[in-house]
Write a protein that binds this DNA or RNA. Structure first.
Lengths: 141, 141
DNA sequence: AGCGGATAGTTCAAATCTGAACAACGCGTA
DNA sequence: TACGCGTTGTTCAGATTTGAACTATCCGCT
């Protein structure tokens, strides 16, 4: 249970730090940043809403809301899906890409300085596989 | 970065599971459950608001709100702090304690089945110390 | 005693999240 | 082709969170 306690506290504390850093650096929330990252890595810099929601792990309605916000900010656009008339594609704009490239270094710096750099190579490897295992278990059910 | 990605996903997925389990089992949210746990472990089953907020890692205003909710449910009571007239003590009631004892097993089962039991003894040990290190780093700044 | 800067909790407005309800579309089968 | 069911994304109401502003209190120093 000590593992769980520490895990829980760490995730909440880190979330706070990240939120604070992103907000002050770019006026972005953490979910918004994650959306930009996912889109930037997707082929064509675009993704279906549902797939994106699964990726960042928020409800469909939360994603609808956030995409609308990002659209207002000009970082993302909606496009109709050619293969499925029900579908909506979230597309990263040029401005969105530039925004991400501008913000990413500061964000990664926070993650590294608090999480990554504190751990030895062995610890990091073990933690990674452990987290991947539990993620897998949680996703498949 | 793989570590971070997996860590982030795991924490969000687990959070969802836990929220769902607690809500259906007792109508509690995860923050509310954590509040009950902290109080149950505190001497006199009571804690100052600020200390409690630091423990569960939420803002003071969020704690004020949640304590009010728990008070309505009869699980917690507010008491004036004898040593500091500004202070407020959150006190776990008998009903709160019984509620916690009723809900805890189901909650722990979720945490165990997804997080703890998937890891070897060595992995668990490493993850624990790693999380404790990062928690420490995050708290002291 | 009395001032002045910290601290404790609460209140408030704004933002965000979730689940349920809904409308529109896709797809297999008769 | 038409029915039925699953999927997609949005809308909506309600709950929760946060930070800022505020009130009340404490404490060290003069």
């Amino acid at each position: 249970m000590a593992a769980w306690r520490a895990f829980l506290s760490t995730s909440h504390l880190l979330e706070r730090r990240i939120e604070e850093q992103l907000k002050s650096a770019a006026g972005l929330t953490h979910p918004q940043y994650e959306i930009l990252v996912r889109l930037s890595e997707a082929p064509g810099r675009q993704m279906r809403m549902t797939e994106l929601a699964r990726g960042v792990i928020v409800s469909k309605s939360a994603l609808t809301y956030q995409i609308t916000q990002l659209e207002k900010a000009g970082l993302v656009e909606r496009a109709t899906c050619p293969s499925d008339d029900r579908g909506v594609l979230a597309v990263l704009t040029e401005a969105g890409l530039r925004c991400l490239e501008r913000v990413a270094p500061g964000h990664l710096e926070v993650v590294r300085s608090y999480l990554i750099d504190r751990l030895s190579r062995d610890e990091l490897r073990t933690v990674t596989t452990a987290m991947q295992k539990t993620e897998q278990a949680l996703r498949s059910s």
